[in-house]
Computed example of a mutant assay.
Amino acid sequence: MTSIKHHIPDALLLEYASGRLAEPFALVVATHVSLCDECRARLSAHEMAGGAVMEAHEKAALSGSLRDNVMAQLDDAVEEAPVYERSSIFPAPIMEALKGRPPKWKPLGRGVRQSILKHGKAGSVRLLYIPPGMAVPDHSHGGLELTLVLQGAFSDEGGHFGVGDVEVADDAVEHTPVAAKGEACICIAATDAALKFNAFIPKLLQPIFRI
């Protein structure tokens, strides 16, 4: 998509390429890379550089039985893993997280809905449905938040974000995202810590909605 203006920072791409990025963020990065030619090329460069470093290191010999066992396990994993394709606005990485099924939306109030894809110690990642013109309550962050637009658009203190754009917000960012007019804004958002809402009602409902 040539209209993408907000990309994944190199530091996160490098963590993703090395397999060190936490699963919630890795899903957002994988989804963005599936949409963005520029970030896909940058990721490929990181992977090639990592491969070159591994090639330069001295190789350790493996016993025949260990090598055969590892290869057999890899073959089993490849054979058993289903392959998911894009469906509607949801790219393949999200369809894999959904196991090929439609999202299970749950209301958050005022027309806003969410579908939690993963929630655990490493953080959480969810789909968000925000009606046109609706604002997400003003909040800051206890850690990192990545938000990728899949449909529609939103604007906040950091700018305007359309389909394919990703907003990176850390604990220094306080914002009030507002969905653009037109079609509903649907995003995938990952966090590694609870959001910090300023208003009383969002704070009260936060444990229930696991935001």
Score class of each variant (00 low, 15 high):
V33S: 00
A56Y: 01
E58W: 08
H57K: 14
A56I: 04
A49M: 12
H46I: 11
H46A: 13
E38V: 15
C39H: 02
A30M: 03
A45S: 13
H57E: 15
L27Q: 05
H46G: 06
R42M: 08
C39W: 02
A52M: 10
A30L: 01
H32P: 02
E38P: 03
E38Y: 12
C39N: 05
M48E: 15
A49R: 13
E38K: 13
G50E: 09
E58K: 14
A41V: 06
L35C: 07
A30Q: 07
V28T: 04
T31M: 05
C39M: 05
E55P: 02
G50P: 07
H32W: 00
E47R: 15
L27A: 03
H46M: 12
A41N: 13
V53C: 10
S44L: 12
L43H: 07
A56S: 13
L43S: 04
L27T: 03
V29G: 02
V33Q: 00
G50N: 13
A56V: 04
M54A: 15
R40T: 01
L35A: 08
A41W: 02
V28C: 04
C39E: 09
E47W: 05
L43F: 06
C39R: 02
L35S: 09
A56K: 09
G50A: 08
C39I: 02
H32D: 00
E38A: 12
R42H: 06
S34T: 06
V28K: 01
D37Y: 09
H46C: 12
S44E: 15
C36V: 01
H57N: 15
S34W: 03
E55D: 15
A56T: 10
V28A: 00
E47K: 11
H46P: 06
L43A: 04
L35I: 07
L27G: 03
L35V: 05
C39P: 05
S44T: 12
C39Y: 00
G51E: 08
M48H: 13
H57L: 15
R40G: 10
S44K: 12
C39Q: 00
R42G: 03
S44D: 14
G50Q: 08
V29H: 03
T31P: 06
E47N: 07
E38F: 14
H57T: 13
V29D: 05
G51P: 03
V53T: 10
E55Y: 04
H57D: 14
G51V: 00
V29N: 03
V33P: 00
E58P: 07
A49V: 10
E47P: 04
V28H: 02
S44W: 11
S44H: 12
R40Q: 12
E47Y: 06
V53E: 12
A41L: 10
V28G: 01
H32S: 11
L43K: 05
V53N: 09
M48K: 14
V28Y: 04
L27D: 01
L27K: 01
V28P: 04
A45P: 01
H32Y: 06
L35Y: 03
L35R: 11
G50I: 04
E47S: 09
H57Y: 15
G51S: 07
L43W: 11
E58M: 06
A30S: 10
G51K: 08
C36N: 09
A56C: 03
S34I: 09
L43P: 04
T31N: 08
A45L: 12
A41P: 05
E55K: 13
A30I: 06
V29A: 02
S44Q: 12
T31Y: 03
A56H: 05
L35N: 05
L27I: 10
V33E: 00
A30T: 02
M54N: 10
